[in-house]
């Protein structure tokens, strides 16, 4: 099957790029998830220092575009004597970015658990850790699932930025093919379609989850609208 001059070899190359996009997204989601959990817990910690520090971290990361973070890691670090491969630089930049956003989303979810739950747990003489782990987090997770799935769509889209540091993922493989075919419209339309195919099921799923969560309880205001282009 051929579209324009796209042949099977190109398709295989694109598929390989798509695979790396998925791998990079997985790295970003997992690493960002672990780090984001830490950020979220620090944001609701009783220690004022932890709250302040994690708040500053979130402000710092959300205030810089992921593109600039990638430039900094990939081009900047070799300038002061550290050599980093593209995958590490891109992965690290995404992990940091994702952790700040997920941390904020999850903080919102933890705070959306009604206050009396904390108080009731305290009345049962649970320690702060027990309260958090046994009472609050299980409820927060139910609230957190739809916005987290929705955010993973953003992560997949943000992996396209890794192309600027020369990491061959979907967008970059499209650029390479375009450089040999000179048919930008066809090539980029195909790329966009592949991204759409990756993201749309996730968006649909998050919307379904959201609706289901809505029937269980009104979802916390403002979470669903949190989105990065």
């Amino acid at each position: 099957m051929e579209i324009g001059q796209l042949n099977a070899n190109h398709a295989a190359f694109l598929l390989q790029g798509a695979m790396w996009t998925v791998v990079l997204s997985a790295i970003a989601c997992l690493g960002g998830g672990v780090l984001g959990m830490g950020v979220a817990l620090c944001r609701v910690a009783s220690s004022r220092f932890l709250r302040g520090a994690s708040g500053a971290y979130v402000q710092l990361v959300q205030g810089t575009p992921p593109l600039v973070a990638m430039f900094l890691l990939y081009f900047g670090l070799p300038g002061i004597g550290f050599d980093v491969p593209a995958l590490i630089a891109a992965g690290l930049a995404l992990v940091v970015n994702v952790s700040a956003f997920l941390g904020e989303i999850w903080r919102g979810c933890i705070e959306a658990v009604p206050r009396p739950q904390w108080e009731a747990a305290e009345c049962l003489a649970l320690s702060r850790i027990q309260r958090l782990v046994k009472v609050i987090l299980p409820q927060a997770v139910r609230i957190a699932v739809p916005p987290t799935v929705g955010f993973s769509v953003q992560v997949i889209k943000n992996t396209s930025l890794a192309s600027v540091v020369g990491f061959v993922e979907l967008a970059r493989s499209g650029q390479i093919i375009n450089n040999s075919l000179f048919q930008p419209f066809v090539v980029y339309a195909v790329i966009a379609l592949v991204y759409f195919a990756l993201c749309y099921p996730l968006s649909r799923w998050s919307r379904v989850l959201e609706r289901r969560a809505g029937s269980w309880r009104r979802r916390p205001a403002g979470l669903a609208t949190l989105a990065a282009p």
Partner: peptide
Amino acid sequence: RNTPLLVQIFLVYFG
């Protein structure tokens, strides 16, 4: 909403 900004920009610019 389901495609990255980078690809949209390329599509508009080169397309």
